[in-house]
């Protein structure tokens, strides 16, 4: 287990899991934070790809997260670049794309890269919670 840079959540953390939301719109992060916190998750935020990567690597040890929710169109490091970085650095952490682009080709190519879900905004809060729960569940099946 110690091999995984991102451990799956341990019971002592008393949360359903830790979610990183990456989106350049503050209110979109806020909706996700309020919704997922209410559903029992711990939420950390990144305002673009660069900011998210920094958030993960700022401490002495890489921060442990169970799911990453990532937008596509963002300044600095965009979603596609950020996702390829997450996949290479933290291959066991499921990624959910949440984007305003209803782009079938992009969705297909991202799914091929191992993205677990592709949600097109506007996304209902329930749907986001379900997608996160499914991703965390899949991860637990994978790591145990």
């Amino acid at each position: 287990m110690g091999m995984w840079p991102f451990g799956h959540h341990d019971p002592s953390r008393a949360s359903m899991g830790r979610v990183l939301i990456v989106d350049d719109e503050e209110n979109i992060r806020r909706v996700a934070r309020l919704t997922l916190t209410k559903a029992g998750y711990e939420v950390i935020e990144g305002k673009d790809g660069a900011d998210a990567i920094e958030a993960l690597n700022s401490g002495e040890n890489p921060l442990l997260v169970d799911v990453i929710i990532c937008d596509i169109r963002m300044p600095k490091i965009n979603g596609v670049e950020a996702i390829s970085y997450f996949r290479s650095q933290y291959p066991s952490v499921p990624i959910i794309v949440q984007t305003g682009f209803p782009d079938l080709n992009l969705a297909t190519s991202l799914m091929k890269q191992g993205v677990s879900d592709y949600l097109v905004k506007p996304v209902e809060n329930e749907k986001l919670i379900a997608a996160v729960a499914k991703a965390v569940e899949g991860r637990e099946m994978f790591t145990t």
């Binding site: 719109e25 979109i28 909706v31 309020l34 905004k121 506007p122 996304v123 809060n125």
Partner: peptide, 12 residues
């Protein structure tokens, strides 16, 4: 993108 973002916030 510019329309779906506000819609997403409104729904949320």
């Amino acid at each position: 993108h510019e329309f779906n973002n506000p819609l997403h916030m409104m729904l949320g």
